[in-house]
Amino acid sequence: MTTDFSKSVPATLKGDQDVRPELKRVISEALGGRKVSLSPDVLTQESRLVIERAPEPLDPYGNPISGRLRMEKPNIFVLKKAGNSCALYHEQSGEYYPLSGVKCAE
């Protein structure tokens, strides 16, 4: 049965669980297959997750390659809970991405 997330509420991750593989999977799917890295404490303190381009690689002088960047809106995800199900809500697209094997709390 498909969960209706339209009335879901913001949530955070619950308990001692490393759900990064699942989070990476759905975020990568939402971002067209791009590689994603997440820190261990992601979504444990707040429901909002800001995803942006990784820091620029260094040039041979040890400085970021460009160093003069145009502002680009990051992708924002919100962890949401509906009943016993959790999903990542992608702010830009308005899409919900159900999470498998993830426990979350309001």
Partner: peptide, 22 residues
Amino acid sequence: DRFHFSRNTAEYQQQINSGASA
């Protein structure tokens, strides 16, 4: 010109949660 570079696009476009890196 000391600033002339190229990088693998897939790596360059890698996404992270803000401020995090390995």
